[in-house]
């Protein structure tokens, strides 16, 4: 927060659209504190029955992976086909397997 404002911090909003589903990131908003953030999220992101539950996280509290580290972080699983059922072709046609 800079000193020009009373600027309200940024919050990330996650909405669960119905029971049994995960909360999904819907967007963000500004609010002075967590209680108002929750209420603002209700007003902003569930005007059309979009949700049954909300999560609010202060944007600064999100820990994100570094996009520049994509290689070391996310490419290792490539080539490890044996983690997938489709790798095992010899058992094809065997029932209930």
């Amino acid at each position: 927060m800079s000193e020009i404002n009373s600027g309200w911090p940024l919050w990330e909003v996650f909405v669960r659209s119905s029971r049994g589903l995960s909360h999904v990131h819907a967007g963000s908003l500004h609010a002075p504190d967590k209680d108002m953030a929750l209420r603002n999220a209700r007003d902003l992101y569930t005007r059309r029955n979009e949700g049954v539950s909300l999560w609010i996280v202060n944007s600064n509290d999100i820990v994100a992976s570094d996009p520049d580290a994509k290689g070391q972080f996310f490419e290792s699983p490539q080539g490890k086909d044996y983690r997938h059922a489709t790798y095992y072709t010899k058992s094809e046609g065997v029932k209930h397997l």
């Binding site: 009373s6 002075p32 108002m36």
Partner: peptide, 16 residues
Amino acid sequence: GAWVREAAAAYAAKMA
């Protein structure tokens, strides 16, 4: 709205 935004921010700071 300035005084309202300030009040809410001040309240949040106090609560924190």
